[in-house]
């Protein structure tokens, strides 16, 4: 029989692909205009550029911040698409790897969760969003640790997962701090600009 570990790796990767497939399918079911598609594509490309533009700063991922702002303004489904597309597209140029589906999931979920936060707490304060962005720096790192942990570390238990998280904690902390600083400095401005363009999609003249 195949060893248990092989099933764990396959199962975790298959689960990620199933979740991605489900989210893409839900985007397909939405009635989407050409303007919305173009806007999602542009925000994905801008978020992907965020990886390149901030490459000089250690693990400051402007992508997470841009994806979360997109999700906050355009809603969970579009937010997920922006995050997933940003990961896939940027990796076409920076190298696809086993990390790609997990990055798609992590950035997709960050965008979707920002959209959900807006729906659940419409009047969420700036401080609340800063904390949320900060936490996503760690959530992103933990999701990325999952593929690494499930494929290459044995035994699969909470201790080994904590060890994997400890090994990446300084990178995750830079990511979290970068998200918080970016939102603190530029979050409101980005939301204002993107919100104005998003409203332009919805305006109809009778």
């Amino acid at each position: 029989m195949l060893r248990k570990g092989a099933w764990a790796e396959m199962f975790s990767t298959v689960m990620v692909i199933v979740v991605l497939g489900f989210m893409f399918f839900s985007f397909e079911l939405h009635r989407t205009s050409s303007k919305e598609i173009a806007l999602v594509a542009v925000m994905s490309a801008v978020a992907a550029i965020g990886r390149v533009a901030f490459a000089a700063l250690p693990n400051v991922q402007a992508t997470t911040f841009i994806v979360m702002v997109s999700g906050y303004v355009m809603g969970p489904s579009a937010g997920f698409m922006v995050g997933a597309a940003a990961a896939l597209v940027s990796n076409f140029f920076m190298g696809q790897g086993p990390w790609t589906p997990w990055q798609m999931l992590a950035w997709g979920l960050s965008g979707a969760s920002a959209g959900l936060i807006k729906k659940l707490f419409p009047s969420i304060s700036r401080a609340g969003m800063i904390i949320f962005c900060f936490l996503w720096g760690y959530f992103f790192g933990w999701i990325m640790n999952l593929w690494y942990w499930s494929a290459f570390i044995r035994p699969l238990n909470i201790n080994s997962f904590i060890a994997a998280c400890i090994s990446s904690i300084w990178l995750d902390s830079f990511h979290a701090a970068g998200n918080a600083v970016l939102y603190f400095c530029f979050g409101q401005g980005f939301i204002k600009i993107l919100g104005r363009f998003y409203r332009r999609l919805k305006v109809t003249v009778r």
Binding site: E28, I37, A41, S44, M81
Partner: peptide, 9 residues
């Protein structure tokens, strides 16, 4: 639609 978004991006 997803493929179109990805192609455009």
């Amino acid at each position: 639609k997803s493929a179109l978004v990805l192609s455009l991006a």
